[in-house]
Design a protein around this nucleic acid. Structure first.
Lengths: 348, 348
DNA sequence: CTGAAAGCGCTAACAT
DNA sequence: ATGTTAGCGCTTTCAG
């Protein structure tokens, strides 16, 4: 019952032109009279013709295929908001622009992760690659992809990734700074910070912003305790005792993402602590979890879905030559501190 | 710098056989001497040859492309655990089996959603289609896809979808029943139930199980209040007042998923209620949110990631003819009540 | 501005 | 058990 779909030749025949002309019309090529163009479009319409992307790609045309790669290990992090929101945004933009995305999950500890990613783009003829952290800072990977003629957009590159390829992201350093400033304004002077997974440079910039804010008030290493988690809720609960029992007795805790903040929050509840009276806690991302925990989490909002969308748009702009500028462009989106109910003045 | 990749002819030349023979080896075809097979594989190895899927597909071979369609509206439900876990499972199985998935988000209110899905599979030459709820019960869609020669696997079909195509899922009716039995055992006699979005038949089976358990104890419509949400946390908070102020004064609330349960929990906190002393609350799915809220949620576990994985495996079994049976098979996975801290005996 | 010819890399028939 | 012959549907030269 596999109904035979009309081919470009059917369209050519119906509109009384050569196959090439149809191809030109379809690809927005120049040198076609408006009258002919209209006639062809008409035929396309009546036949409900759709190009065969495989044939197009094989013939040397565009594959209109993009790859989206993310690193989170599904075992530990079964439902990272960050990645799924990114993907959703990318999917939506693709729909509008006529592209398809191949999603690939490559846990970072995969021994040959670089090879796996490069294999995907060459084998499947992907024209563009969207790299989420920490791959967005893997310069070797970026350059290898670029060398193969695959355009690259990085999401939240932390530093090394910038300049090598187009990118999107928020100012993570400023986000960490702003959040910490708010806590300082409330009167906090003893802090905790839970950082994310090593090598996630954009997340580390949040820590840098935190330190800058502290430094401005004359506070330093002796006034804060910095621990490192892995972005998961569980790592928040795991790290909580070390933080809560620390001799410094921090009154405020800044976390590199919402899940870890939620983990600490939960551990604090389990101990019978009152949040925010006993400890102010803040997150980062403004993921759904921030509104779900009790009390709702004060955090730094970043427009993750839009990030995914912009990533695709930047890629397509490069691919279609809309973006003439030779230099890598970085699209910095706005972040915002969202004050909810896990922050208050320190109890003295 | 786009390095020219070796083609099947290069492999044929190097191994001193005809192109067809290489093709046979690559596709596990019969009638090839072991010696020749080995020689070809050797050449494939040394050349690092990879088939060009576009060419293969165009020539009438397999596209090895699957489509995964989900309905949730990203505006309302920015991060449905259910769908992303399904996708993750599918992705992992595809990696192992050499398939690719095209993910498509088609909100159900899309006017021409059926056309959109069918267009995807014909245009992209997808060989298989994974339908998540509520599309898993869209018989017209399933039959249309099947008629195009595209194999279909439904995830959690509620009834109509069963039998039309292979499927995977848990026994939702039994899940609802088991959860409710547990509450009855604790002594509850006045219940609330928050159902999911209309048309999600598998979720409605949870309600049926709930009713069956009540019926067995001689309880009926007069002993419970049933409301309908849309699976989101927000719908849980929205519905909470109606439930909490209901004259029946339910002592236990069964929800069709975890997010809605979390929403009610949050609303209950905001009112100063103690959970579970003032109200027992249960969810369904055992999503991460169940472990994140306070107190952690009693719920029905279902292995969503495995569901996604099994869906791909069933599809590939059909495609490769491993599955000879002509009848549609339904792979029912285990569910389990997970008792955490939102349930206790009613306060009398 | 339009068309004719050639071929992308592969598989399906049909030989042998 | 292996090879020969034809395309799949499209885009690229290169001619007019």
């Amino acid at each position: 019952m596999t109904t035979k779909r009309p081919t470009i030749d059917d369209v050519a025949r119906l509109s009384g032109v050569a196959r090439v002309t149809v191809s030109r019309v379809l690809n927005g090529g120049p040198n076609v009279r408006d009258e002919v163009r209209a006639r062809v479009m008409q035929a396309v319409e009546t036949l409900a013709y759709k190009v065969n992307p495989q044939a197009r790609s094989l013939a040397g045309g565009a594959s209109r295929l993009l790859a989206f790669v993310f690193a989170s290990d599904p075992e530990n992090e079964p439902n990272s908001y960050y990645e799924s929101a990114l993907e959703l945004g990318a999917l939506r933009a693709c729909l509008a622009l006529g592209y398809q995305v191949l999603v690939q999950n490559v846990p970072q500890q995969t021994p040959d992760h670089q090879k796996r990613i490069l294999d995907l783009i060459t084998t499947q003829r992907c024209e563009g690659l969207i790299l989420s952290p920490p791959y967005s800072d893997d310069v070797a990977l970026i350059e290898a992809a670029l060398a193969q003629g695959c355009k690259v957009v990085t999401v939240s590159p932390g530093g090394p990734g910038r300049g090598k390829a187009d990118g999107v992201g928020v100012d993570d350093e400023a986000g960490g700074y702003d959040m910490t400033r708010e806590l300082l304004r409330l009167g906090h002077r003893r802090f905790g910070f839970i950082a994310g997974l090593e090598g996630h440079l954009s997340a580390d910039r949040r820590l840098q912003g935190f330190r800058r804010a502290l430094g401005e008030q004359g506070l330093g290493e002796g006034d804060c305790v910095v621990l490192r988690g892995d972005f998961t809720f569980r790592s928040g609960t795991r790290l909580a005792p070390e933080l809560l029992d620390h001799p410094l007795k921090p009154t405020a805790l800044v976390c590199a993402n919402d899940d870890m903040a939620a983990g600490v929050l939960s551990a604090a509840h389990a101990r019978g602590l009152s949040i925010p009276q006993d400890l102010s806690i803040t997150g980062f991302d403004d993921a759904p979890v921030a509104g779900i925990v009790w009390p709702p989490l004060t955090t730094v909002h970043q427009p993750v879905k839009v990030l995914g969308q912009r990533a695709v748009e930047l890629l397509v702009a490069r691919l279609t030559g809309v973006n003439v500028s030779d230099a890598a462009i970085f699209d910095e989106l706005e972040h915002a501190v969202v004050t909810r109910q896990t922050t208050t003045a320190p109890h003295l």
